[in-house]
Amino acid sequence: MRHLPALLLVVAIAYVLALTLTEAPAFGGLDVPARNEVMRFYLDEELDQAGIPNTVTAIIFDYRAYDTMGEATVLFTAVGAAAAVLAGHAGKLVARPMAATDDVILRIVSRMVIPFVQVFGIYVVVYGHLSPGGGFAGGTILGGSMALYLFVFGPKRTARKIPPAWGEIMEGAAAFWYVLVGLGGVLLGANFLANAAAGVPLGVQGQLFSGGAIWLIGLGVGVKVAATIVNLLVHLAGET
């Protein structure tokens, strides 16, 4: 019974959006309204103002850093909600509880690979302002390495390596780190999350330690995302 109303709704939305499309600015044009002074400002001024070549990172961690704080909070919320839902869940009805694998090749290869993955993740985090990447991408890679560990060695051993309490504390601490950096702007006499405006030294362009607070925020977000992924996976896998 729910098919017909759903179809009608979808057709209605499709019709409205199709009408919209006929008058939308053409795809790929250089003179579309969205390519206005706001965008040009970012591209033209960003290198002087935020001091890093990666404009996207500059927008995420500086111009619109407040949104990104919200974004980190969404992650935090999801972890919290998932942890609360899965609290005390023992993986009892899931067909096969997750356990350590017996596969020797898998274990040895993962032992070898995981450090490299982690180093790469750290690289992506700390070089996020110079090249494609950043806290979110790097954090995901870091988290991925730990996910690999979890899949291969099982939740029990992972919990011994990273106690669940640590994961949660890290989660809160990394998120609060973001707030602290923001409050640093206030302490320095500027607004919340201010970077260059608060007199944070931007450093030399293109160097590792450049971009002022961007670098600090990026680091925090990297830890945050890694912790989030570990926490989520640990909870989904079931507590030991």
Binding site: D62, Y63, A65, Y66, G185, N191, A197
Partner: peptide, 14 residues
């Protein structure tokens, strides 16, 4: 309030 001291079209206003 301009978060991060970035004026509205570029930054976020509260």
């Amino acid at each position: 309030y301009y978060v991060g001291n970035w004026a509205p079209p570029w930054g976020i206003e509260i």
